[in-house]
Design a protein around this nucleic acid. Structure first.
Lengths: 105, 105
DNA sequence: CCTTGATATTGATCGTGGTCAATATTGACG
DNA sequence: CGTCAATATTGACCACGATCAATATCAAGG
């Protein structure tokens, strides 16, 4: 019954404090920024297997991509995830959510 | 442990096929559009108590507002929910979700 | 190879949430 | 007040997901 709707899966992937924190860190380092999985283990106070599980959920929902570099694995925001998120917002409010953002003058 | 983070609650409220369907219907009828609860019972193939439960979740997360008219109760998108959704998107992708929308050349 | 560090998987536990049947509440209208 | 239609609440059941301890895989260096 896994809901199979990709929009629901995207929202569900973000609807967890640990995962939202991970994704926000990835967003904060910019578009091409990559973060080592070990860094997530340090910051969020959950165990390493739990972090690995959350990263798997995010990857499976198409939110992040992973790239191996030696023993470390670096994660980055998947391309197009912002578009997907914005598209869901558009289907909700039927409009332009962005116009409402704090405009940086 | 209810996660208390309003962003997580907003995303969680949308991360359900039935609730997303409800919110999309509300978005489709436009800004001031209101929809009777009974209409949701008809369209989504879940029982009336379940619809009532989902509406309660959406109301509790600040996604919808309700207004009684006789025996019927009409629901509408809460003001500011689009802004809240967009703000989360901004914190994710750095900014710009809107520029990323399908550009109509 | 063997060890070591990083990540993933397994297995188990436990809370949360979606669902329904049954029942209660609420409001309108005789 | 009694009835009816609409909505909410209760109680129970079940699946899913978040979590951790233990273990496995995987890659680099000696």
């Amino acid at each position: 019954m896994k809901s199979s709707d990709p929009d629901v899966r995207l929202l569900g992937a973000l609807a967890d404090p640990t995962r939202l924190s991970i994704v926000r860190q990835l967003g904060a380092v910019g578009r091409s920024g990559m973060i080592c999985a070990c860094d997530f283990v340090e910051c969020c106070d959950v165990s390493q297997p739990t972090i690995s599980h959350h990263l798997k959920v995010l990857r499976s929902a198409g939110v992040v991509t992973s790239e191996r570099q030696g023993t470390n694995i670096y994660y980055a925001l998947a391309p197009g995830v912002a578009e997907r998120y914005a598209a869901i917002g558009a289907s909700l409010a039927g409009l332009v959510p962005l116009a409402a953002l704090p405009s940086p003058t």
